[in-house]
Amino acid sequence: KRPMNAFMVWSQIERRKIMEQSPDMHNAEISKRLGKRWKLLKDSDKIPFIREAERLRLKHMADYPDYK
Score class of each variant (00 low, 15 high):
residue 1 K to M: 08
residue 2 R to D: 12
residue 3 P to R: 10
residue 3 P to N: 11
residue 3 P to E: 14
residue 3 P to G: 09
residue 4 M to F: 13
residue 4 M to W: 10
residue 4 M to H: 03
residue 4 M to D: 07
residue 4 M to G: 06
residue 4 M to E: 08
residue 5 N to L: 03
residue 5 N to R: 01
residue 5 N to V: 01
residue 6 A to I: 01
residue 6 A to V: 04
residue 6 A to L: 01
residue 8 M to S: 12
residue 9 V to F: 04
residue 9 V to R: 00
residue 9 V to P: 03
residue 10 W to F: 10
residue 10 W to C: 00
residue 10 W to S: 00
residue 10 W to A: 00
residue 11 S to K: 01
residue 11 S to V: 03
residue 11 S to W: 03
residue 12 Q to K: 07
residue 12 Q to I: 11
residue 12 Q to S: 10
residue 13 I to H: 14
residue 13 I to W: 03
residue 13 I to S: 09
residue 15 R to L: 03
residue 15 R to P: 02
residue 15 R to D: 02
residue 16 R to Y: 05
residue 17 K to A: 01
residue 18 I to D: 00
residue 18 I to L: 10
residue 18 I to K: 00
residue 18 I to V: 04
residue 18 I to M: 09
residue 19 M to V: 11
residue 19 M to L: 15
residue 20 E to T: 06
residue 20 E to H: 10
residue 21 Q to H: 07
residue 21 Q to C: 03
residue 21 Q to L: 06
residue 22 S to I: 04
residue 22 S to L: 04
residue 23 P to H: 03
residue 23 P to C: 01
residue 23 P to D: 03
residue 23 P to K: 04
residue 23 P to S: 04
residue 25 M to Q: 03
residue 25 M to C: 07
residue 25 M to F: 03
residue 26 H to I: 11
residue 26 H to C: 15
residue 27 N to W: 13
residue 27 N to T: 12
residue 27 N to I: 09
residue 29 E to F: 01
residue 29 E to I: 00
residue 29 E to C: 05
residue 30 I to S: 01
residue 30 I to H: 00
residue 31 S to Q: 12
residue 32 K to L: 11
residue 32 K to I: 08
residue 32 K to Q: 14
residue 33 R to T: 14
residue 33 R to I: 12
residue 34 L to C: 01
residue 36 K to S: 11
residue 36 K to E: 15
residue 37 R to S: 10
residue 37 R to I: 05
residue 37 R to K: 14
residue 37 R to T: 12
residue 38 W to T: 02
residue 39 K to T: 08
residue 39 K to N: 09
residue 39 K to D: 13
residue 40 L to Q: 13
residue 40 L to C: 12
residue 41 L to S: 01
residue 42 K to A: 12
residue 42 K to S: 15
residue 43 D to T: 10
residue 43 D to L: 10
residue 44 S to T: 10
residue 45 D to M: 05
residue 46 K to P: 00
residue 46 K to T: 02
residue 48 P to M: 09
residue 48 P to R: 05
residue 48 P to W: 04
residue 48 P to I: 11
residue 49 F to H: 10
residue 49 F to S: 01
residue 49 F to P: 00
residue 50 I to Y: 14
residue 50 I to P: 01
residue 50 I to D: 03
residue 52 E to P: 00
residue 52 E to M: 05
residue 53 A to V: 01
residue 53 A to T: 01
residue 53 A to H: 05
residue 53 A to C: 01
residue 54 E to M: 04
residue 54 E to H: 04
residue 55 R to N: 08
residue 55 R to P: 04
residue 56 L to R: 07
residue 56 L to D: 05
residue 56 L to P: 02
residue 56 L to M: 15
residue 57 R to W: 06
residue 57 R to H: 01
residue 57 R to V: 05
residue 57 R to Q: 08
residue 58 L to H: 13
residue 58 L to F: 11
residue 58 L to Q: 14
residue 59 K to T: 09
residue 59 K to G: 12
residue 60 H to I: 05
residue 60 H to G: 14
residue 60 H to N: 11
residue 61 M to G: 14
residue 61 M to H: 15
residue 61 M to S: 13
residue 61 M to K: 13
residue 61 M to T: 13
residue 62 A to K: 13
residue 62 A to C: 10
residue 63 D to A: 12
residue 63 D to N: 11
residue 64 Y to N: 15
residue 65 P to T: 12
residue 65 P to I: 06
residue 65 P to C: 08
residue 66 D to S: 12
residue 66 D to Q: 07
